[in-house]
Each structure stands twice: as C-alpha cells, then as structure tokens.
Nucleic acid binder design. Structure first.
Lengths: 151, 151
DNA sequence: ACTCCTATGTTGTATATACAACATTGTGTG
DNA sequence: CACACAATGTTGTATATACAACATAGGAGT
C-alpha cells in the first residue's frame, strides 16, 4: 500500500516518543499544582525558583538557571515578577556584574502558606502517577541533575 | 533555631516535589528535540500535534486536546501556525460546529524529513535518562492516558 | 417548537519558555 | 597594561501554555 512507509514512521514515533510523553506529564502535573496554588496567586514555576533561592540563597540568577536548566532570559523576567510581589530581594553583588537573589520576608510567608497547598497537589500527583511512576520521575530527574553538573 | 520550621518546609519540598522534577525533565527534553528539529523549522510541540492528526485523523481539535491534555485555546493558535505552513488541512465538518483536521501533503513530507532528526533526539534522550528512566516515563505517561480516558 | 444547557472554537490577557542580539564586566594571556 | 574572550544579565521576538469571557451551534427535555 502507498501509505506504508509513512504509517510505519507515524506508528514508531507515536508509540515511542519520549518528548510527547514528558510534555504530557508536564502539562498535567503543572496544572495540578497551579490549580492548588491559585488561591495564593503564585504559579508552580515561580515557587520552584523561590525554593531554590530559599534553599541555596543568597545565589546568583546564573546559578539558579544552571540548577533548574532554565534560560537566563526566562529567569530574568520571572525574577522581575517575583520582585514586584516582594517575594525576592535582588541586590548588586560587590563584583559589580553578578546579582544576588535572596528570599524576602513576604517570600518566606508565601512558602509557609503554600506548604499545605503544595502537599495537596503532591499527594494528588502521586496518586495520579502511582508509586512506581513517582519513583521513576525522581530517578529520571536525578540522572538529569547529575548530567547537568557534569557539563 | 528561629528558621527551623521554614527550613524543614523548604527541605521537604526541595527533596520531594514532583513538579520541579517533571518541569526540569520537560525543559531538558524539549530542548533536545527542538535543537534536533531546528533545521526543519518545526518545534516538537507542533510535531506532537501533527503526529496525532497523522495517526488518528481526520480528527477534531477538541479530540486532539483531549488526547494530549492541551487547552483548546492553545491548540487553536497552534493549528493556525501549522495551517500557515500548509502542514495541516482544516475543514468545516458537516455538523457545522466541529472542525476537521487532516494531514496535508506538506505535513506528510515534513514527517518524513523529521524522522531521522527525531530518531537522533530520541536516542540522545534515552541516553540522558537511561533505560530505566525512559521506561519510567513510558509507564507514567500510560497511567496518565488511562486516567484521562476515564474522565 | 421552544428553552436551557453543553460542546466547540476564538480572542484577550498573563505567564513561561527559548533564541538572538546586545551592553557590561571580569579574566586571562601576551 | 592592553586586548581578546567569556560570563552575566537585559531586551526584542516568537511560540506554548492556560484562564476568562465570548459567540455559536447541537442536543435534550418539556
């Protein structure tokens, strides 16, 4: 039949493509967390950055980018928004070029208020993925973090 | 110490959050595929939609949304772009309300040209995630698809 | 047949994401 | 020290994503 080769190609990509699958998981899980966090007016993308700063800060934007594999321009605008909310404090490093990001008091309060909502979303996600699935995600992410560090 | 409670909260979220991890995987893998596909001027997000249409089409936008868990407004604009490239044919269904999406000839040629580039990205992703990680992603995605179908 | 509700798709708006180009600042090497 | 190069962050542009509001069209129930 005339469509044989294309059909095989489509079948192969459809049944194996890792990008389709990871992107589906990303949309689904991001929606779960954003729904849960909506009462606080924060999105999970912003909470992610806030957590990195809370755990590793004071830290430069460049280091946050490397940790999360985010493009610097993406983070730059995200930091603007979080500074507007007074969640982050941004100061000029003594080196002149680098900036210093720190958790601001409002950011601290936000994290405390977010915790029960985060727990709810996390539980919901675990039940969606199953214990196996959740463990798998952890393992895959650990692999990526190891690779990122190696570059 | 004064920071005890916040520190515990931050530690818990940092070490367990599934959203951070899936979003990290999503950015990393999407970049791998977009890099590979760049010579063709198509992004993996568009190729995903094209594959669904190629495999299941003729199909309505709403059904594509349900399959990929994409918001209808997101797909609406994506279809516009793909129609501009003549990759997709959009026609009005006889029912008046629904639209019919089909693979256009240029879309077919695109998929054929994309296959070797997709294979390269897929291989690279497998080697990034490891065999375990890749299998894990498949299992997690299957779980989500089953859940989506159940709603 | 009429009314109400739902499904479908578009548009306005906000955020997330990345690439390209740019300005600025350190750094290292001759 | 001077110059070239790399690192850092911003801005312009394009796409992806979702929510809210909307218009329209089908369908269900009376």
């Amino acid at each position: 039949m005339k469509n044989g080769r294309l059909t095989n190609t489509v079948e192969t990509i459809a049944s194996e493509c890792l990008a389709v699958r990871i992107r589906l998981l990303n949309r689904t899980v991001t929606n779960i967390f954003d729904d849960a966090l909506r009462p606080l007016g924060v999105k999970v993308s912003q909470l992610n950055v806030l957590m990195v700063v809370a755990k590793l800060g004071p830290i430069t934007p460049g280091d946050v980018c490397r940790k999360l594999n985010i493009e610097k321009s993406t983070l730059s605008r995200n930091v603007d928004r979080m500074r507007t909310h007074n969640w982050l404090k941004v100061s000029e490093g003594d080196s002149g070029r680098k900036q210093i990001l720190e958790l601001a008091p409002a950011g601290r309060r936000l994290i405390e208020k977010a915790f029960p909502l985060w727990t709810k979303a996390q539980t919901e996600t675990e039940s969606l993925l199953g214990q196996q699935g959740a463990k798998s995600i952890h393992r895959a992410a650990n692999t990526v973090w190891a690779q990122l560090g190696r570059e």
